[in-house]
Design a protein around this nucleic acid. Structure first.
Length: 220
DNA sequence: AACTGGTTCAACCGCGTCTGA
DNA sequence: ATCAGACGCGGTTGAACCAGT
């Protein structure tokens, strides 16, 4: 006996959104907001969609200032650092990346960054399949090492983060690395995530000074 | 050109948490 | 204090696209 569905699946449209539906939803939300209830919004807006589907479409695609694709090195660093410290709290991680959604960050981690990090640190397995790499990564400790210089970053809670706030810049030593004959992306990751040279003192200092207060402010 | 396997990412699902009556 | 409905989240799925053969 499972939980009752949030809406009648036989009466709502599913699958990809059409441009017309996007326009309807965008216009309605911009004019009326969410009216305090996503569940009732589709009916008010004249959409044959589940409220949860509307909410997801708005948050991940239609709302202003959304950025798609092209994650920067600085964003990579922030994702890796926060994943190392708090795990797969994608909404918390995304809140530190203006314009990024939790879905975007999650997809980026699962499809690209995780593999990139592993390959950069295990060059001999670079030709392995994604499935094989993923299974290896999943069996590893979640506690990736963190470069001490990342301590310089300042993180803001979401309600203090302006929509177009600049992403905290990476330290110079992390921004212009071309080492070991690797591409800049890979060299950057290798240099910023040195598996064998992690300073635990720095990790705990960083965790207690910056991440734990932030993490606690998000606990729900 | 056709097929196949891999990759990407939008969307869905179900569960935990929150909130207001 | 309790409970039902709504919200928000992380995990997963599958269609579309891409690259190699």
């Amino acid at each position: 006996m499972g939980r009752a569905p949030c809406c009648d699946k036989t009466k709502v449209k599913r699958g990809p959104w059409s441009p017309e539906e996007d326009t309807t939803l965008r216009n309605f939300v911009q004019k009326h907001g969410t009216s305090g209830s996503w569940i009732s919004l589709p009916q008010k807006a004249g959409l044959k969609r589940c409220g949860k589907s509307c909410r997801l479409r708005w948050l991940n695609y239609l709302r202003p200032n959304i950025k798609h694709g092209g994650f920067t090195h600085e964003e990579d660093t922030i994702i890796l650092t926060l994943y190392h410290n708090i795990g797969s709290r994608w909404s918390v991680i995304a809140s530190q990346l203006p314009g990024r959604t939790d879905n975007d960050v999650k997809n980026y981690w699962n499809t690209k960054l995780k593999k990139k990090l592993f390959v950069a640190n295990h060059p001999t397995t670079a030709t392995a399949t994604t499935e094989g790499i993923n299974s290896k990564i999943d069996s590893m400790s979640p506690y990736f090492p963190v470069d001490a210089e990342i301590l310089d970053h300042q993180f803001l809670p979401p309600d203090e983060m302006p929509d177009c706030a600049p992403i905290p810049s990476a330290p110079a030593s992390l921004s212009n690395i071309h080492a070991n004959g690797l591409y800049e992306d890979d060299a950057f990751l290798v240099e910023s995530m040195p598996y064998d040279a992690f300073d635990f003192q720095d990790k705990f200092s960083y965790q207690s000074n910056y991440l734990e207060p932030m993490y606690q402010s998000y606990t729900y």
